[in-house]
């Protein structure tokens, strides 16, 4: 049986979601998406430029991908809601990744504003994917607000520092029944593998791929790591022991 993720009214096979910022060109972004085998791509509406074919990011994302527009640039719930509505009006579907960031230095999400926006947008029929600081109280509130997933950060956006929030992400995985997608901060494929081994439903990666000198190869590496981590999670792990288990135990003569 194929291992698929049922989310936002869709069934997806790849558990790697790709961000589309920071690439040296839209052409390289297009190749990275293809090589990553990702089925979902996030796009910042603020960057969608319909002026020319070359500058329009949407021309480089194949039509079979699911677009997950994000509210990048929103500093309040109200701005996030307005950006989401513009996305829907532009025909970019009913998935929305809520990003409310009013901290320009560390780019940390404002959970309180995110919850407010999630409540409004879920009522309007959006599938809400909220980017959040990994706090279990907020995760519960997001679920109550109607979010279809929880997207805790692994580390501040763009830092490539890896899963610094591991214990808090683990709590969210354990305590909510929504799919958990770690978003932001993952710097290496091994970080993505760890997330998947822990039971994350998917991971979202942008900077680690876009800022690599070879984004296309890095996209492939992340795809492999996500797949490996997921397979390991499904296979389940053998126990870990503090003590060595000798193959010739001292009391073996009794058997």
């Amino acid at each position: 049986m194929q291992d698929c993720l049922n989310i936002g009214g869709r069934q997806i096979r790849s558990r790697l979601i790709i961000g589309s910022g920071k690439y040296p060109s839209n052409a390289i972004l297009g190749k990275a998406i293809e090589e990553s085998r990702a089925e979902v791509v996030t796009v910042a509406l603020r960057r969608v430029n319909l002026d020319t074919k070359e500058d329009n990011i949407l021309n480089f994302i194949s039509k079979d991908k699911i677009l997950m527009p994000n509210t990048s640039g929103a500093k309040t719930a109200d701005e996030a809601v307005r950006i989401a509505r513009l996305c829907k009006a532009a025909g970019y579907g009913n998935w929305i990744k809520i990003e409310v960031v009013n901290d320009a230095k560390y780019l940390l999400p404002d959970n309180e504003e995110t919850i407010k926006a999630a409540e409004v947008l879920a009522k309007e029929g959006f599938y809400v994917f909220p980017y959040m600081y990994p706090d279990i109280i907020s995760a519960r509130k997001l679920k109550a607000a109607g979010a279809c997933s929880i997207m805790p950060l692994g580390a501040p956006i763009g830092t490539n520092k890896g899963l610094l929030t591991k214990e808090f992400v683990r709590m969210i995985i354990n305590e909510t029944d929504l799919p958990v997608i770690v978003d932001a901060g993952l710097g290496r494929p091994s970080d993505a593998a760890i997330c998947m081994e822990m039971g994350c439903a998917a991971v979202m990666v942008n900077t680690a791929i876009a800022s690599s000198p070879d984004p296309v190869e890095m996209a492939k590496a992340f795809a492999l790591a996500v797949e490996a981590g997921r397979k390991a999670y499904l296979a389940d792990f053998g126990g870990i022991s503090d003590q060595a288990k000798a193959s010739s135990p001292l009391t073996g003569f009794l058997n």
């Binding site: 690439y23 040296p24 430029n49 500058d55």
Partner: peptide, 16 residues
């Protein structure tokens, strides 16, 4: 800018 391996960005905000 493209020749230098960078992407020129013309739009980075929108009217709300």
């Amino acid at each position: 800018i493209y020749g230098l391996g960078y992407q020129p960005v013309f739009k980075d905000w929108l009217h709300l």
